[in-house]
Design a protein around this nucleic acid. Structure first.
Lengths: 159, 159
DNA sequence: GCCAATTCAATCCAAATGGATCAATGTTTT
DNA sequence: AAAACATTGATCCATTTGGATTGAATTGGC
């Protein structure tokens, strides 16, 4: 059976919304992660963390988790990598010595702007099937789902 | 800074579409994978493969890859696991002895129907912020992106 | 002020991941 | 029809992952 036919059937099933979103994100990740890995020698985790740190100077590790729902030690390792390459610096929080405030260095900011540029180009590419109106509608609906109360805390999947 | 404030800012940035979709899928996976892992003792890969096999009896391993963009050996291992538990059987293809046609057994079908049920409940949960109209609009737009030509083959991220 | 409980981030380690290779089968070329 | 090439799926193995633990710092109860 052809790939189109398989997808068409799955996208007509009961789990269509789950399937189609997973397909977009997994498919895009397969392309993007590999490319960024090669070009910048850095796993997604690390560039996600760099993005968070560049966008929010002084952000704490635990706050990065709220933006990118990944395990805690993943963030910890990503930050260690970024610090090792001189892309970010950590400063002990004046109010709480357990917390480390994260800042991008000059070279971190430079790398981040390259990362954002290529990611934006890539994003335009996979969004190209949508008209500008469709695109903003799509984003708004996705935002509504993302900020809904049940995405990260489930009642049907207890524990 | 609060989680809401952080998300609001990221969802206003240049990469908002990428961020919001990744957030939905990563966040949902964190909840869902862990629950399914505990309840059915099976990684996502395996249940994805079981879903594909149950939906398309006689599907080949390479075709499962087209539905779930994962590395080839991931599918191979998932199928081995499913076979080891008696949830699927492999039959050598009559037309090509390299290919193995996959079929769900009775117990495989039973487990699949349970998996689909809990996944459907979970899907209803995270989609609950949308009205029925918004939901079908969201799906249609996502489908358009998923079946677009550039999702899996990029020109801006060459190698 | 002291001790238990809590929070933050680093580290540990068993298990999973995925790129590369391999063996088996099928297809194409000459 | 033999040899070169291609495709399918399993396996190898170095790297990564993530749940659990640890250690350091803070908070809360008394």
């Amino acid at each position: 059976m052809s790939a189109e036919k398989l997808l068409e059937t799955v996208f007509a099933g009961e789990l269509r919304e789950l399937m189609v979103l997973s397909y977009i994100v997994l498919g895009n990740n397969a392309v993007t992660n590999r490319c960024i890995e090669r070009r910048f020698g850095m796993p997604v985790q690390a560039w996600s963390a760099l993005y968070a740190i560049g966008t929010f100077p002084g952000i704490r590790a635990k706050e990065i988790r709220q933006l990118f729902p990944r395990p805690q030690n993943t963030i910890s390792r990503a930050v260690t990598l970024l610090e090792g390459r001189g892309l970010v610096v950590q400063k002990i929080s004046p109010s709480d010595a357990r917390e480390k405030l994260l800042f991008a260095t000059k070279s971190g900011k430079e790398m981040l702007s390259q990362l954002i540029e290529v990611s934006r180009d890539r994003q335009e590419e996979w969004l190209s099937p949508l008209t500008p109106d469709e695109r903003s509608m799509f984003f708004e609906l996705a935002r509504k789902v993302a900020t809904g109360p049940n995405l990260l805390c489930s009642t049907v999947m207890t524990r």
